[in-house]
Amino acid sequence: MAEGKSHFKELLLVFLGLLVLTGITVYVAKNINFGSLALNITVALAIATLKATLVALYFMHLKWESKLIISFAVISIPFLILAIGIMVWDINNKIGLGNYNLQ
């Protein structure tokens, strides 16, 4: 079970990378406007996803895991996308119809 090889160097690099990405995302959010709120949040989420991937691949060892564990590790992601996608699609489609404004 001990893989023998030390991954310490990779871990350290990933840690530094994560710090840099955190800095970038804060700087971008404070100083750069991409033109629309939606675009800004997309950029922030893209950076977050990059960070999350790094954590999963290196800190959580996914890079060195078997195919079985990798496939089950990502199994929730399609369902996450499904839930967000369809519910947002539905709500988007009926803006104006399903606006429960009681005032």
Partner: peptide, 8 residues
């Protein structure tokens, strides 16, 4: 972090 703190 970005969803809560950086949407401003």
């Amino acid at each position: 972090f970005p969803l809560l703190y950086l949407v401003a």
